[in-house]
Simulated assay, not measured.
Amino acid sequence: MELGGQIFENRQRYDELSHQMRHVEDVIKLLDPAYNLARITVKRRQPNKWFKRGTLYRRALDRRALDVLRTATEPMTTTELANGVLAAHGVQDASKDDVLSIALGIQHSLKNHEGKGVERIGEGNPARWMLRTP
């Protein structure tokens, strides 16, 4: 019961601090509209509807992305991979933001595994990826 109370208090404190941080960001933007807030802002991503967050989420997403790459005939961008993962999962009504959220997770995973199973093809943007051939 005590732990539950502490969790509740932490959530309330999180809401208060988050609200204060938004005020700080707004004031900075008022003073200098060109200032890059990316260094100080807290990531406010909403969880997607289809895959849960956490270590198992990352591993499952990695596997799904690799399955899509295995069947690909040419290098793919992370957005194409995200669309392929969602299609394989049977998702038809994904919004653009949902696709980009999943593509971002795939991109981080691919960069972490670059040269160890996947490779970036070419130097253009957006990056195109394919499985590394031994």
Rank of each mutant, 00 (worst) to 15 (best):
S18A: 08
A38E: 13
V85G: 03
G115M: 10
H23W: 04
V42M: 08
D15I: 11
K111V: 09
Y14V: 15
P33G: 05
G117K: 00
K116V: 01
A82N: 01
E25A: 12
A65Q: 08
K96T: 11
T78M: 02
P134L: 01
L56D: 15
L131R: 04
F51L: 14
T78K: 02
L86D: 00
Q92W: 05
G115S: 10
W129G: 05
S95I: 04
G105Y: 01
L69T: 03
I102N: 05
N36E: 12
L104N: 13
K49I: 06
R45Q: 12
G122H: 06
N10P: 04
I7K: 14
I7E: 13
R39F: 08
E119W: 03
T71Q: 14
S95F: 04
R22Q: 12
A88S: 14
Q107R: 05
I28C: 07
Q107M: 07
E123I: 04
E74S: 11
E2C: 04
T79G: 02
L3C: 03
H113T: 02
A127N: 03
K111P: 00
P33D: 01
L104P: 02
R44C: 09
A82M: 01
Q12H: 15
I28M: 03
L56S: 14
A127S: 10
L110P: 01
K111L: 13
R13T: 15
K29T: 04
D26F: 00
N10K: 15
R39G: 15
L31H: 08
G115F: 06
T71L: 14
R13S: 15
L31F: 08
V118Q: 00
D97P: 00
R128H: 05
L100D: 01
